[in-house]
């Protein structure tokens, strides 16, 4: 059976989204087809406004409202500009902000190095980070990319690039989650926790 083109093109568009396979894509498309008009209209409007009403902060490349040059965090005078925490995505900023434990500023790379997907340093906000640090006033850069192979590779690359600038470079600790059971930790995490053990103070 051949589908009308408008449905097939919606399915294709949905399938390009992360976490959505062919099955979910067709289910969503047919749901929208059957649902009342305002469901589809609301979605279309929200999607259209998404790009129109947001922009990236020119300093840290976090998401901000359109029309602003710099985000709230970068403009805040209460935040410590001498510490920069480097993360992969804007959502990571949100996660760190929820902790309330970090008073420095951020830098969002907007991805990680991944040659398979053709993503190199020029596709990330790495040059901008180097320029930011080179301007001075930064004492420490915290590398908070995910503890995945690509995240680790990106962190290593950043360390190499930052080394000549004489800034302190640190990496987030890795190990066991709070409230977790040793018994149920996966082998990989446990091994890393073991090798990264610390002196009790």
């Amino acid at each position: 059976m051949l589908l009308p083109e408008s449905i097939q093109s919606l399915i294709n568009a949905l399938e390009r989204l992360p976490g959505i396979g062919p099955k979910s894509a067709s289910r969503l498309a047919f749901y929208l087809l059957r649902a009342t008009d305002d469901v589809a209209d609301d979605l279309a409007l929200a999607l259209a406004n998404l790009k129109k009403n947001t922009a990236f902060c020119e300093e840290c490349f976090n998401i901000t409202e359109a029309g602003r040059e710099r985000c709230e965090i970068c403009e805040s005078t209460r935040r410590d500009g001498s510490v920069i925490c480097v993360v992969e995505e804007a959502l990571d900023v949100l996660a760190l902000e929820r902790t309330g434990g970090f008073q420095g500023k951020y830098h969002v790379l907007q991805g990680v190095l991944s040659p398979i997907e053709g993503i190199g340093p020029d596709d990330l906000k790495i040059k901008q980070l180097i320029a930011r640090v080179a301007r001075g006033g930064v004492q420490e850069v915290i590398l908070a990319t995910n503890p995945s192979m690509e995240g680790d590779a990106t962190a290593l690359y950043l360390r190499q690039q930052l080394e000549p600038l004489g800034v302190r470079v640190t990496r987030l600790a890795r190990g066991l989650p709070m409230g977790g059971d040793l018994e149920y930790a996966d082998q990989n995490t446990l091994l890393r926790a073991l090798s990264g053990r610390q002196e009790m103070s």
Partner: peptide
């Protein structure tokens, strides 16, 4: 001829 050679080191490491 795409990309910079300095990236290789991080994959050499892994």
């Amino acid at each position: 001829g795409l990309g910079g050679r300095d990236q290789l080191e991080v994959w050499d490491e892994a």
